[in-house]
């Protein structure tokens, strides 16, 4: 048994199902240390996005115990959720950008929800969008951006609030290998600054390049794969 406080995330015998459907996740046990970096892999339909939904509190487990930031979620009421969610940044698989808001306003959303002063919002958002190479597209609606550009807006929105836990669902799915590498560097940099990161992907190439630990989902169950150098 690990010390309770050491984990940022802890799953104990967690099961999850949609409505009355079959369990898509079964007996999931794992924990994430603060400051760790994991990949989450598995075939399409294995349940990667579902596991992330549990992590970003879009779904409640059907059984088992999920502990996040040391707080037992089974005991957390609705009122506790916004506070927890503000510590989590999410890049959704389908981006979920708000269609009628500009790239700028989409990225500004987490800061405005926090109630930041507008001058601070302006400065931070402009800087981050410039950093992901969208400095010339601040006013663009998501529909007028390419898939890769939308993805970068989604990533910017996920990280603008400096979350403690960053969850990214296929964040490099729509970009060329070059940009994929740059985005990976962004994630690694954020991790270096202390953000705990989980990236769901089936891009084996991306995974292999970094030498970071891999959680693999198969048949509804989760396994921590041995690190390459450990396997050798």
């Amino acid at each position: 048994m690990e010390v309770e406080s050491s984990g940022l995330v802890r799953f104990e015998n967690v099961g999850m199902r949609y409505g009355r459907g079959p369990e898509v996740l079964r007996d999931v046990n794992f924990h994430l240390e603060a400051g760790s970096f994991h990949f989450l892999t598995g075939a399409s339909g294995a349940g990667k996005s579902s596991l992330l939904k549990l992590l970003y509190l879009a779904h409640r487990p059907s059984r088992g115990i999920v502990t996040l930031f040391g707080q037992d979620l089974t005991a957390a009421g609705r009122a506790a959720l916004p506070g927890l969610r503000r510590r989590i940044g999410v890049v959704f698989q389908d981006f979920r950008l708000i269609a009628h808001l500009s790239a700028f306003d989409n990225v500004a959303l987490p800061l405005r929800i926090l109630g930041l002063r507008e001058e601070a919002v302006q400065a931070q958002v402009a800087e981050l969008l410039a950093w992901v190479g969208l400095g010339d597209h601040l006013a663009a609606r998501p529909a007028t951006l390419s898939g890769g550009e939308q993805q970068r807006v989604a990533i910017a929105r996920a990280v603008i609030g400096r979350p403690q836990l960053l969850l990214a669902d296929e964040p490099t799915g729509n970009v060329d290998p070059d940009l994929a590498q740059r985005l990976m560097h962004l994630f690694l940099e954020l991790n270096r600054l202390g953000t705990t990161i989980v990236i769901a992907t089936h891009d084996e190439h991306l995974v292999a390049g970094t030498g970071r630990p891999v959680l693999r989902l198969a048949g509804g169950e989760l396994r921590l794969l041995p690190l390459p150098h450990e396997a050798r």
């Binding site: 970003y56 509190l57 879009a58 959720l81 916004p82 506070g83 969610r85 503000r86 989590i88 999410v90 979920r96 708000i98 959303l109 987490p110 929800i113 926090l114 929105r157 609030g161």
Partner: peptide, 13 residues
């Protein structure tokens, strides 16, 4: 509904 869901997930009260 969809935008409200996103706002909630971002941490909106």
């Amino acid at each position: 509904r969809e935008v409200i869901a996103v706002l909630h997930l971002i941490g909106a009260h």
